[in-house]
Design a protein around this nucleic acid. Structure first.
Lengths: 312, 312
DNA sequence: ATCGATCTTTTCAGATTCTGCAAAGGACAT
DNA sequence: ATGTCCTTTGCAGAATCTGAAAAGATCGAT
């Protein structure tokens, strides 16, 4: 153990080195962490001086790694992850969950199910701040720095862990007004003569799948309107503009009030897979931070009740 | 990646934490690394504050780890070892001749001089892989990621360093058969009545320069054939097709065997500059990797011998 | 060929962190 | 009760860190 009196901030140098390699220049790295290019240049130069190793070949347009630089980069990335893990592990063993919980969900589920539950959760854990972000875009948990994302499908990525909160079904719905003035729907194929409000999943044809007594029928659906937002589809359907395919619990209120009717109730319907639900999704970790554990536990207990309550 | 401006020396804090746990007190840790107990106390306090985790239970006689402290200690020890490993690995690649050596040379020099020397070099350094690339194109050492290039001229670029391996002369040669059936060459100007096999240097006229007793004569040379490849020029000259201007050591065997004759031996001849040779060229570096140093040293020792041997 | 944009490096002066000393208080052993 | 060793906190001086400015390099666009 050598003398540590007034030693250079080596960890900062390592972080800057990794950032410079990733971003491709000292200036870009500096912009990222709030330092000037001059500071970045000095740190990395000092790192090389202390090591006695040239890590980078510099030019104004190209940053090249030496062979020694390559191995040092790989090892240093691992070290930085190790530090994050050490901190996360220590924090996870705290008895009181604290800090900020960053949560993501689709808009409709966030509005209808999650947001009514947040106040009750925060009453239990007042030291925990919650950021709830809603969008139709599927985030990257690590890169976008979310603690929990609510996803409708089981995750394939081994780096993710999930807790299933509920099963869901998709159902066809339309307003009574629309049902009265359009031809009756008896078979799935009748759907082609209707105005379908579809969920936007890409530039391909929209296919709705109908399952009845283990017989599957796939219908290419004409779509005069599509959106990636469930609230919009729900509102247009209730407004009498066509037929929408939506998750059952998200239209429970409209069904109860009679603003929407279910169509073809004898069929299971989906635009992707039949086996769907709602999963609380978080990064795999040796020690799950307490704040995530308590949040997921709370939602596992309360989401099914919330969904039932709004379906009554 | 968070703001790094004036961030606390986290690595030092981690090192002090580990040392305090091992030594059993802040004071003992401080004695070990040359810091006062007050400094150690402040670092560890700051570490806990930033983590939001209590790591140690302090008393004047006993330092106790919390549960969070225990896991943080284990992980931090690993991190510190990881840093040592990263540094050792980078230094090892710098100081030990290992890894891959990427070498470039012109074709003729590569075939005649370099490639016979590579096995001897690799016997000395078996852990070093060598990639030898031959071409007539002048590479960019940094962008093309070559460690060493053999160039015939002194470099003007300050980013490059060179070691001169040998001096060379260019000489006029032709086969005995060609000499017997063509008019005798007495003066440089006689060259215009001969078939010249020229080295392709661009679309301009080819000029051969003759120096005798400080008198320079520049002759525009008729060229029925040109190539950027010395092997080709050598073969055509030996086949009796004309006169070629080639580096002395590259035609030593042909001169010895009588397949080629030297012409106008009283003149120094060149198609560019008279002061040429062969330079091992590599990127300027504060810390020259060992693999480059041993390679250049080996070639500096053996190339002159190899050239003499083939000139005998 | 010129210009503009972006880059790295070095120097300088001001801002901020780091440092030991001193003081205060605590926990033992003798 | 005393001595030894310990941790913590405030203070003032020492050292590091920082961006701005200047200089030079390298491209791409015109």
């Amino acid at each position: 153990m050598q003398n540590l009196k007034r030693s250079m901030n080596r960890l900062q140098a390592m972080e800057l080195f990794v950032s410079a390699v990733r971003e491709g220049s000292f200036s870009a790295a500096g912009r990222r962490v709030g330092l000037s290019p001059a500071s970045v240049s000095r740190y990395i130069g000092e790192l090389e001086a202390q090591l006695g190793v040239q890590l980078l070949n510099r030019s104004t347009r190209h940053l090249g790694l030496t062979d020694a630089g390559k191995i040092f980069f790989q090892r240093t990335e691992q070290v930085l992850h190790g530090i994050e893990d050490a901190e996360a592990a220590a924090l996870a063993l705290q008895t009181a969950p604290r800090g900020t919980l960053r949560v993501h969900s689709r808009t409709l589920f966030g509005i209808k199910v999650l947001s009514p539950l947040i106040p009750g959760f925060q009453k239990l854990y007042p030291e925990l701040k919650v950021e709830l972000r809603l969008s139709e875009r599927r985030p990257q948990l690590r890169e976008d720095e979310f603690d929990v994302d609510f996803q409708i499908q089981a995750a394939k990525d081994p780096a993710l862990m999930q807790r299933r909160l509920l099963r869901s079904e998709r159902i066809l719905v339309a307003s009574p007004d629309y049902v009265a003035r359009m031809p009756k729907l008896r078979e799935p194929e009748d759907i082609t003569r209707h105005n379908c409000l579809t969920y936007w999943m890409g530039p391909d044809d929209v296919v709705w799948k109908f399952m009845h007594r283990n017989r599957l029928r796939e219908i290419v659906v004409p779509s005069s309107f599509s959106s990636n937002n469930g609230v919009v589809l729900c509102d247009l359907a209730a407004g009498g503009h066509g037929i929408a395919l939506l998750d059952d619990y998200t239209v429970a209120d409209e069904l109860k009030s009679g603003r929407l009717r279910r169509l073809l109730p004898g069929f299971r319907v989906t635009n992707s897979t039949f086996d769907e639900g709602m999963y609380a999704t978080f990064l795999q970790s040796s020690y799950l931070p307490e704040k995530i554990r308590v949040f997921v536990d709370y939602m596992a207990e309360h989401v099914p009740k919330q969904v039932k309550r709004s379906a009554r």
